[in-house]
Write a protein that binds this DNA or RNA. Structure first.
Lengths: 219, 219
DNA sequence: CCAAGAAGTAAGTGACCGATCACTAGGTTC
DNA sequence: GAACCTAGTGATCGGTCACTTACTTCTTGG
């Protein structure tokens, strides 16, 4: 298997592991074990654990963009937003690595390099939602705000809808996103949608930047 | 110094440390150093590091409640909510441990015991906001959703308002909370406010539960 | 056929971490 | 003054961590 293919495999495994225990709580052995390679080999593919984490952040942000693209296909304005929101909530219900990475990446923002990567990833998602929906900024702010609240409720394990306290809140989150797509909010319907935003450079770009010519110069 | 006073001191130090590096990234020596006691002594005050983290979660949730109480004093309905929101945003600007604990506690929710503690803490805050504002559930959902979004933007270091991309978003967050308190949303104005919700059992209750009679029975 | 380079690993390193244990100092009570 | 309690420490242990070094095996193209 080529190193690039391996790197891809490692990143996917890293997403799964980092999503559970975070940057500091995950050992490189855990990731190596999941891939099925030796732990030292990870350090040939990625210079440091943090760099692998950053790549995982980029990958998972790309996944979010893909989910949004798929959900919004053929829809416009707030209707697209509602579809994206519903797709996202459904994703949180299915135990998914996306939630974990969302939580862990913000928690790891104390590290400046991680922070920069997270910022870039979130900007990419934000831009993508703007391109897909064409909705005005205040509507998008609402969209993201509620998404973040969904994350927190899901983190607390109350996204399955079996809790008397959180269920009404989840209902509000779901109903409002549906209502927003209804006919009473007409301002966005006519906004032309700029689709096909060029796929932003994600983890692949990172890999290229870091490993374009990884030579043992001292050998 | 009595053990209870020390425990309090340790919890405050733990909040500061855990807020930065999280449950797994913080060493017990770091916390001990900050307090000025030996690291082994922490384990006389708290049985495990995780228990200390849980106590820190409880403490920081209590702080949030206190901030809300102070901000909402003498205000009602959405007006109280707006004041709380503004107080919270100002708190995020001043580099505060609250943000870090917010982020870290959700990231640590993979641990079931931590998750339970976080859920209890957030339920306490949620209940507190309901009591203070008396606002209907959809308004409160909006309030919390935007608070969570503020957290994320602050985590990315863009809460200081010097970023061309995030500034408009922060403006929306601030303006909307103000507008919501304006006269065009009257439904909540008349709702009587139940103040003085009994201070919920926080970390102190935890301490009592765990250390009510800590005896070396084998000696 | 063989050299060069790439994929991959076994073994190891020093640092660190959470937790334990045996112990001391100072005070209180009969 | 013996018995007892509480606050607090030094030493250290078993284990884990990220990362390194030196090696082997496989592939490939001239």
């Amino acid at each position: 298997m080529s190193a690039d293919e391996r790197r891809d495999q490692v990143i996917r495994a890293a997403v799964a592991e980092f999503a559970m225990r975070g940057l500091e709580g995950t050992s490189t052995s855990d990731i190596a074990k999941r891939v099925g390679v030796s732990q030292p080999y990870l350090f040939r593919l990625f210079p440091t654990k943090r760099d692998l984490f950053i790549a995982a952040v980029g990958y998972s942000c790309g996944q979010v963009r893909d989910v949004f693209s798929e959900a919004a296909e053929g829809r416009y304005g707030t209707e697209a937003l509602a579809a994206m929101g519903e797709a996202y909530q459904n994703l949180l219900l299915a135990d998914n690595e996306l939630l974990g990475m969302q939580l862990q990446q913000f928690a790891a923002c104390h590290d400046p390099e991680v922070q920069t990567a997270v910022r870039r990833g979130m900007q990419g998602i934000w831009q993508h939602v703007e391109n897909l929906s064409g909705a005005p900024v205040d509507v998008r702010v609402d969209f993201f705000a509620k998404g973040m609240l969904c994350n927190m409720i899901a983190a607390m394990g109350r996204a399955d809808g079996n809790d008397p306290m959180w269920q009404p809140i989840l209902d509000v989150l779901r109903d409002e996103s549906r209502a927003a797509a209804g006919p009473d909010r007409a301002s966005c319907e006519a906004i032309p949608v700029r689709t096909g935003s060029p796929r932003e450079p994600g983890y692949a770009e990172y890999v290229l930047r870091s490993f374009s010519s990884d030579s043992d110069s001292s050998a």
